[in-house]
Design a protein around this nucleic acid. Structure first.
Lengths: 213, 213
DNA sequence: AAATGTGAAGAGGTTCACAGCG
DNA sequence: CGCTGTGAACCTCTTCACATTT
C-alpha cells in the first residue's frame, strides 16, 4: 500500500539503527518522529509501518530489532551487493572509502579510471583498472551496482556500457541525463541542483524579511 | 502556483543549459521532456513554466535564453554565493573541486578540518583552517552556505556552530539528522539511502521476474 | 492510560481535454 | 497547423479523528 521506494523508509531505517546503537530496544511512532527531526508525523510513520505488516504493540510501541529486519528485507539490504565504481578522482575515492567503512552489505569489487596516473594503483587491495576493461571486469567480479563519479560528458557512454555488461542499477553523480531504459534503475545525485535549492531557500527568506519590514 | 523548491525546476535549468551549449536557441515543451528522459510530461513542463510568467510563443516553443535567465532569477542563481566546507577529506576535496570548476556562482571561501595533517595545507590559494576557527572565519569570509563533509558524529555540533555563526543554508553529506530549526535551510544527501533505493529496485525486478516465470 | 491501526476527510500535485495565439 | 496556456477531472498522499488493543 506504501511505495517501497519512498525515501521515508530509508530515513526510518537509519534512525532505527541509530536508536539501536544507543541501546534502545523499543520505540514509539512519536519517538521515531522526534528522531527524524519532525519532518515526518507520527501518524504517517504508523501508516507506513502498518502497511509493511503489523509489527507494533499497542500501548508500548515497536520493537526495534524485528522492525529493522523487516525494513532490510523490504529494502533488499539482507543480501550482499557488489559495486563497480567508474572514476577514481577525489569523489570516487571518497565513495569507496565511505561505502567500505560504513555499509557492510556493499562491497566495492571493481574500480575504473581513464587516467594513466591512477590506473594500476591499489586501493584496499584492489587494482584500479583501465576503463576499457569495464565489460570484462564487471562480469568477472559479478557487480550488481555501478557508481558514476566521472565528468559529465563521460557519464552517458559509460552508463550504456555498464548496462550492456549486465549492471541493472546505477548511482550517478555526474550532472548529466543518462537516457537508460528499464530494467536499469538510476538514481541521480545532483550536487549543483541541491546547492540551487539552498540558494532558492535563501532568496525566499530574504523576500520574506523584506515583506515583514 | 508551483513550489519553487521543486527538483523539476533544477532539472529544467540544467537541460536548458545543455541545449543552449549545443547551439539551440529555442525548444518546445515536448523537446525539453525528451531531454529529461521522459521523466516529466510536456504538460507538466508547460504548467511549471507558465506559473513562472508566460514566456512561450504559441506555435513555436520557448526561447531558451530568457527562460534560463528567468529560472536563475527564481532559483537565486543570479547572485554570487560564498561557501564554507567543513571536512576536507576526499569528499570535501571533491566538492571543492567540482564547485569551483563547474559553478561560477559559487565560491569556496573557507575550508575547515580537524586533522593536523590537513590543517595549514593550501588548496587553490586557500589555507585549510582548524575547525576551532569556524565562527571567526565564517564571519570574516561572509559565507552564506555551509557544506558538511565530516563523519556522522561530528555533523550535528558543527551544523549548530555554523548556524550560530550566521549561516542559513547547509548541505549535509553526513548520514546524521541535524535537528536545526528555521530559518536554516538544510538539504541532506544520503548516499547510503540512495544505494538502498537501488537495491530495493533490484530486488523488485527480481520478484517481477519470478512472477513471470 | 498509552500507543497502535485505520476509515474518512482534506490537500496537493498530475493528467486530460481543449481553448487561445502565432 | 503547431504548440502554448489553463480550467476541470483525477488521483495520490497526508492528516484527522477515533476505535482498538495491551
Amino acid at each position: 500500500m506504501i511505495d517501497p521506494a519512498s525515501p521515508r523508509l530509508y530515513a526510518y531505517h537509519r534512525a532505527l539503527r541509530e536508536a539501536s546503537a544507543e541501546g534502545c530496544t523499543t520505540i514509539t511512532s512519536e519517538g521515531l518522529a522526534a528522531r527524524l527531526g519532525g519532518t515526518v508525523s507520527s501518524t504517517q510513520i504508523r501508516k507506513d509501518l502498518a502497511s509493511l505488516g503489523a509489527l507494533g504493540r499497542r500501548g508500548c510501541g515497536y520493537e526495534i530489532y524485528p522492525l529493522v529486519t523487516q525494513l532490510e528485507l523490504v529494502l533488499g539490504l539482507e543480501q550482499d551487493w557488489r559495486i563497480a565504481i567508474a572514476g577514481f578522482g577525489y569523489l570516487g575515492h571518497a565513495l569507496a572509502t565511505f561505502i567500505t567503512a560504513r555499509e557492510s552489505r556493499f562491497r566495492v569489487n571493481a574500480i575504473f579510471d581513464r587516467s594513466p596516473a591512477v590506473i594500476g594503483t591499489q586501493w584496499n587491495g584492489l587494482v584500479v583498472a583501465d576503463i576499457s576493461e569495464l565489460e570484462t571486469l564487471v562480469q568477472r567480479a559479478d557487480c550488481n551496482i555501478g557508481i558514476l563519479a566521472v565528468p559529465a560528458p563521460a557519464a552517458a557512454p559509460i552508463a550504456q556500457r555498464m548496462a550492456a555488461a549486465g549492471i541493472r542499477a546505477i548511482l550517478n553523480f555526474a550532472p548529466a541525463t543518462l537516457h537508460l531504459r528499464a530494467p536499469v534503475a538510476v538514481r541521480n545525485i545532483d550536487i549543483a541542483g541541491e546547492l540551487s535549492m539552498l540558494t532558492h531557500a535563501l532568496t525566499a527568506f530574504g523576500a520574506q524579511a523584506q515583506e515583514r519590514a
